[in-house]
Write a protein that binds this DNA or RNA. Structure first.
Length: 103
DNA sequence: CGACTGACCAGAT
DNA sequence: TATCTGGCCAGTC
């Protein structure tokens, strides 16, 4: 019968489908993957992605419209650069306007 | 087994 | 805007 993909696979698929210039929150991505209220699980899963992944991990931000890495860290800076390349406006304080860029 | 930790979140103050 | 609280749940020790 119909075999359903594992949760992680559904997460990858949903993430790969985020259009250019758009972002999603951890909680939103959890719902898209069919795992409502599992925002933390999304974070744990993304953390395990290989460093050379082609998935747009940088499109995932928290519900406050901020990058979930310590300000000034390499990770935060890398994510901000990626988002800007993708056409998303990111302030110096790593803030993104969800009203404009959220899927 | 309990205690603690996270790429989290929503509501209250 | 900032801080706190309770909820969430898989890993780790």
């Amino acid at each position: 019968m119909g075999e359903e993909l594992p949760p992680t696979e559904r997460l990858y698929t949903a993430l790969a489908g985020i259009p250019p210039g758009k972002v999603v929150t951890y909680g939103q991505l959890a719902e898209l993957a069919g795992m409502p209220r599992r925002a933390r699980w999304v974070g744990q899963t993304l953390k395990k992605l290989p460093k050379d992944t082609t998935l747009p991990w940088f499109k995932v931000i928290n519900s406050q419209g901020r990058i979930s890495f310590p300000a000034g860290s390499e990770a935060a800076e890398r994510q901000a650069d990626k988002l800007r390349e993708d056409g998303v406006e990111v302030s110096e304080q790593y803030r993104i306007n969800l009203k404009v860029y959220q899927l």
